[in-house]
Amino acid sequence: MSTRVLICDDSNLARKQVLRSLPENLSTDVQLAKDGQEALDILRNQHIDILFLDLTMPIIDGLGVLQALKDEEINLPVFVISADVQPEMQNRVLALGAKAFLRKPMQLDTLNEHLKSHGFL
């Protein structure tokens, strides 16, 4: 069975960038969401194995998604991919339960390292 992946970013280009960077075993069953609300709708109704989440988005932003997941006890590994790379933002995100904080533009090596340490590779 393939791993179910959700990529949430308001930028089409950014979604494609993530999709393209995924290793083969993660890129077969991928869904896309263009804001936090869309992502939460999917996460509430389906089982997803891993979420790639942008922070700065309209409607519900990345921090809002993390908070909702925590409140609703939806447990899944979340990798935040963010343009805002200030240490304070990293701390906030990790405190809200994200498993990894990846900087934009995303480095393949870093992504693979994190995937490996969480058993996806």
Binding site: N12, T56, A83, Q86, R103
Partner: peptide, 23 residues
């Protein structure tokens, strides 16, 4: 729409890194 999206993303990323350096 695609060009706008791409430019927006380039600017977001640049702004993020610039803000980090600045901070």
């Amino acid at each position: 729409e695609d060009q706008h999206d791409c430019l927006q993303e380039l600017i977001n990323v640049a702004m993020g890194q610039a803000s980090d350096q600045l901070a």
